[in-house]
Deep mutational scan, measured.
Amino acid sequence: EPLWIRPDAPSRCTWQLGRPASESPHHHTAPAKSPKILPDILKKIGDTPMVRINKIGKKFGLKCELLAKCEFFNAGGSVKDRISLRMIEDAERDGTLKPGDTIIEPTSGNTGIGLALAAAVRGYRCIIVMPEKMSSEKVDVLRALGAEIVRTPTNARFDSPESHVGVAWRLKNEIPNSHILDQYRNASNPLAHYDTTADEILQQCDGKLDMLVASVGTGGTITGIARKLKEKCPGCRIIGVDPEGSILAEPEELNQTEQTTYEVEGIGYDFIPTVLDRTVVDKWFKSNDEEAFTFARMLIAQEGLLCGGSAGSTVAVAVKAAQELQEGQRCVVILPDSVRNYMTKFLSDRWMLQKGFLKEEDLTEKKPWWWHLRVQELGLSAPLTVLPTITCGHTIEILREKGFDQAPVVDEAGVILGMVTLGNMLSSLLAGKVQPSDQVGKVIYKQFKQIRLTDTLGRLSHILEMDHFALVVHEQIQYHSTGKSSQRQMVFGVVTAIDLLNFVAAQERDQK
């Protein structure tokens, strides 16, 4: 057995438009009618409502009807409940999964919650491996369901041993009777949507819809739904939504950006999952974080739909894509998950301010006199920076000697690579993860907040409520011999709460 199987392995699926269902090699399930009293909570997966979006479509000038398939009504709160249950049931049916076995899954959280929910009911041990950027709410729900959680670096490539995929496979090879159901490759993922989600949409719309818009992560949702719609409703256009920084969209030119990270969760990847059939997507749109969270908040405030950030991405694209539809036509959007997962993220004004998705003037509360002053007023001194090749031991000596707790790590040209902190280095040394002679590049981390000289002290204040420091950066445009230009970030300084307090105190003292 291989040590790991690539999540982007070539698909062996034989589905073709027009091929009889009787030739399918898979076990198919028909939607079942729910009894009045459910035998367990797993029976509350599927049969989610279709809700008309009344205000947002009109606000953006849509002539067509805009409908939302509300997947956050599933038992675990997301569309991923469907595939989690289906993968477990299919693994039980073919004898792969037996009582007492362990389920391991690399996930952005929602599939993990679905699997942990099913594992709690069915009696399996469950280990979820997820990147650090995923919300604390997801972690809390997983723990409450009895799952064990392993976190991995957000910026690790999918084929790196440190990625959530790599760590999951390492655990599988170490733990007896453990299984990775593997949402990236498992046919049960798109089949769950082909058999149930798509049929529900067709039934709820009486077979009449002209466009379907869905955000894409593993691709199982859009693949399964689109294949069924292509068979039953061939005139329906399928629109895929991919965040900026991901590479799922086609044509490839759409993916060209210097951005590699994004805040919206559960969609987009740096590889093409095996289950994603991009041939059934008629057109791709890219979405960005700001519009995703703005539209998610709009869905909550104006439509009462308590959905997550990827739902915002989907609707932001839908109001663009559906401009081509006329009166009497219908566009369906998939709202994948609930706001429950993001209470401390985009639902929080403070978080939105820190990330730059909300401006101070958007909030009406009274601010102190210094709130709208610029960061450049602080008069920061030149920063202490270190090269990635310097040793951890030497870096600790320098920081202690100069009285700093942290320093930016830059390359020879001064471009920011990340940050090192005294606390992080000492804990890594004590844990045996690094040696004093190791290069400081081994303990770089990139989960820090950046701020510009033109940003306000109010925004800085919000950042420092949650973080010990902020890195002050400025952009530099560099022209190359080819005539092309590129933008790079340079370090201007490091600012802490002490710097802000000293500035405010000094100004008030001078005024007296």
Score class of each variant (00 low, 15 high):
511 Q>T: 13
307 C>T: 15
292 A>Y: 01
415 V>R: 11
372 H>D: 14
343 M>P: 01
328 G>R: 13
268 G>T: 03
404 F>R: 01
456 T>E: 15
412 E>I: 13
286 K>D: 01
442 K>L: 13
242 D>F: 01
303 E>F: 05
317 V>G: 15
274 T>R: 11
386 V>K: 10
436 P>D: 09
395 T>V: 10
481 S>K: 14
483 G>T: 13
462 H>I: 14
384 L>V: 11
288 N>M: 05
264 V>Y: 01
245 G>V: 06
505 A>P: 01
257 T>H: 05
378 L>A: 14
415 V>A: 09
410 V>P: 03
456 T>W: 14
284 W>R: 01
481 S>R: 14
416 I>N: 07
287 S>T: 11
449 K>G: 06
484 K>C: 14
396 I>D: 10
313 S>K: 06
387 L>R: 12
371 W>T: 14
506 A>C: 09
305 L>Y: 08
399 L>F: 13
320 K>M: 11
421 T>I: 11
437 S>D: 01
454 T>W: 14
378 L>V: 06
279 T>E: 15
507 Q>A: 14
484 K>F: 14
478 Q>V: 06
325 L>H: 01
459 R>K: 13
399 L>S: 03
413 A>K: 15
249 A>T: 01
353 L>N: 04
277 D>N: 12
492 F>V: 11
470 A>C: 01
351 W>H: 07
441 G>C: 07
269 Y>A: 01
285 F>D: 11
500 L>C: 13
300 I>A: 01
300 I>G: 01
341 N>G: 04
498 I>T: 15
511 Q>C: 09
401 E>F: 11
509 R>H: 14
415 V>K: 01
444 I>T: 08
436 P>F: 11
476 Q>W: 01
267 I>C: 04
472 V>A: 15
433 K>D: 01
476 Q>P: 13
487 Q>E: 10
312 G>L: 05
414 G>Y: 08
365 E>N: 01
331 C>S: 03
308 G>P: 04
393 G>M: 11
240 G>F: 01
327 E>R: 14
491 V>S: 01
284 W>I: 03
437 S>A: 14
412 E>W: 08
257 T>E: 01
278 R>K: 13
278 R>E: 04
401 E>D: 13
289 D>Q: 01
486 S>M: 14
333 V>I: 13
499 D>P: 13
371 W>Y: 15
388 P>Y: 08
238 I>T: 15
252 E>H: 01
497 A>N: 09
343 M>S: 05
307 C>S: 13
417 L>N: 09
279 T>F: 09
407 A>R: 03
304 G>L: 05
253 E>K: 10
414 G>I: 10
477 I>K: 01
258 E>M: 09
449 K>A: 13
370 W>L: 06
276 L>W: 05
497 A>S: 14
458 G>S: 13
430 L>E: 13
495 V>P: 15
277 D>Y: 01
272 I>V: 10
417 L>C: 15
395 T>L: 09
390 I>T: 15
345 K>I: 05
251 P>F: 01
265 E>H: 01
260 T>N: 05
512 K>E: 13
418 G>S: 11
408 P>F: 06
259 Q>C: 08
397 E>P: 01
252 E>T: 13
375 V>L: 10
494 V>G: 04
329 Q>M: 13
286 K>Y: 04
361 E>N: 14
415 V>S: 10
373 L>G: 15
420 V>C: 15
332 V>Y: 01
270 D>T: 09
392 C>I: 13
448 F>Y: 13
404 F>L: 12
438 D>T: 07
332 V>F: 01
328 G>A: 04
262 Y>H: 01
340 R>L: 06
395 T>I: 09
300 I>F: 08
476 Q>V: 07
